[in-house]
Structures are given as C-alpha cells and as structure tokens.
C-alpha cells in the first residue's frame, strides 16, 4: 500500500439470504481524495458504506483505516445521509456539536468551533435557531458541519443532496468542494446522479447490482476548480458517456 492510502478494503463482501449485496471487494482510497460512487439502487453502495462505518459486519475481509484494522468498529468516520437527521429539539449550534455530546462533554472549544464553522459557511445568524426554521439546503449544510466537526479524516456522504432541488443542489456541490478544499478531508460520496459524480470527484467508482460489485474505477482528469462550465467540458461529456454506458449494462 502507498504511503498516502487512507482507507483500504480487502475482500470485503456481504450476503443477505440469497442476495449478494456486495461481492468481495478490494479497494483503496488515497488520503485527501474525493471519490464518487455511482450506481443504481441495489448495487451495494450503501452496504459498502455501512460496512466501512462499522454499522454492518462484513461476511469476510477486512477494513483498514490508516493501516489499522477497523472492521466492525464504529467511531472512526464522519457519516451523512440524504436525510439530514438534525434533531428538532436542539438548536443549530447544538446539532453541530451533537457527536461530542453523544461521546463525552461539549467543551467551550467545541462550541467555539461550531460557531466559527457556522459563521464561515453562512449560518452564523442561525446558531440559536431550531432546524424547523431552516430550508432544506441550510439543513443539509448544518448536517454537513456536524459531520465536519467530528474531525474524522474520512467522510462518508450517502446521497447528501439527493432530496434537494436542482438549483440548490448545484450550489451545495460548489459549496462542498470549497469546504473539502479548505479542510483537506477525504470524501467518499455516493450518488446516483452521474453529473454529480463527475462534477465533484477525482475518481468515480461505478457499481452494478446482482451481484453488487464495483465494475469500473475511472480516474477523473477534469481540472479544478470546477465551475458551471465544467458541466459542458468535452472531457466531462466523454466520461459521462463512459459511465452511462457502464450503468446500462456495457462492458468496461
């Protein structure tokens, strides 16, 4: 393994009854990279996430983070779903510090960090608001800040913008890229939106169902920073064609 590998899966697989949710998969993710995973439902992408997060024990194989085995253990990744999962009874600030409260004490420094992050990314005025007062996009940003302040090097984002309208989604994608650049995290990003997977990533893993498996691992050569123009770049269109082909049953 290379010095900069953050996450490694070695022959990690999962079977539910007669269904192969995820074929034994081997994979390594570089530190600081942005990897998109794209595939239809049932291709095992969420199963893979749950195994990495430690919510699900794989049938076999090993998950390694920083070259340490973490198979079946929790508390080592940031994790965010399409549902923002903000708790309605806590303010924006207290939602951001939720992980600390659940695992120990929220210190003044944690609070300070939550406020700083919220202000930096445009939610400073909403620290004392309850989530019910926020729009969908704002809620997702709070959920992401909550993920960010866990200080986990690896962030697992499972279709975080899937429920947003197209306009908000594009704004959130650009925002996410900005935060990713600022904070130097490693991101694994599930989506079934091919454009989104290309727009965001350094690398796209294409997955396919029955059995759930990674069918292609595509390096994304598009230059950063990405802008609206990226979406009509000829290279963008080429990669998109390649992925679409794979998603509709073509061979790599």
């Amino acid at each position: 393994m290379s010095a900069s590998t953050l996450l490694e899966l070695r022959d990690v697989g999962k079977v539910f009854g007669d269904t192969v949710a995820l074929e034994p998969t081997t994979l390594s993710i570089d530190e600081g990279s942005f990897v998109a995973i794209v595939g239809p439902s049932g291709c095992g992408k969420s199963t893979m996430f749950n195994i990495i997060a430690g919510l699900l024990a794989p049938d076999g194989g090993e998950v390694r983070l920083h070259d340490q085995p973490v198979t079946g253990a929790t508390g080592h990744v940031g994790y965010m779903l399409q549902k923002d999962l903000l708790v309605p009874w806590r303010t924006v600030e207290d939602n951001i510090t939720m992980a600390k409260r659940l695992t120990g004490r929220v210190s003044a420094a944690d609070r300070g960090e939550a406020r700083r992050v919220a202000r930096q990314y445009g939610l400073g005025e909403f620290l004392r608001h309850y989530p019910s007062a926020l729009s969908g996009g704002m809620r997702q940003r709070v959920a992401f800040m909550r993920t960010l302040v866990t200080h986990q090097p690896l962030l697992l984002l499972d279709e975080p913008f899937g429920a947003l309208d197209a306009q908000t989604r594009l704004e959130m994608q650009q925002w996410l890229l900005q935060v990713w650049k600022d904070t130097e995290r490693t991101v694994l990003f599930i989506t079934h939106d091919v454009d989104e997977s290309i727009f965001l990533s350094d690398r796209v893993l294409v997955m396919s169902p029955r059995p759930g498996r990674v069918v292609a691992d595509i390096v994304n050569p598009l230059a950063r920073p990405r802008t609206v123009d990226t979406l009509v770049d000829p290279q963008f269109v080429t990669i998109k064609g390649q992925i679409m082909h794979l998603l509709h049953g073509g061979q790599p």
């Binding site: 919510l55 929790t74 080592h76 994790y79």
Partner: peptide, 9 residues
C-alpha cells in the same frame, strides 16, 4: 445508527 457511527454508548 448515526449515533452509533459516532461511537456513542
């Protein structure tokens, strides 16, 4: 599950 991912008891 989210709380579990954080490592919450």
């Amino acid at each position: 599950n989210l709380a579990r991912v954080y490592g919450a008891p």
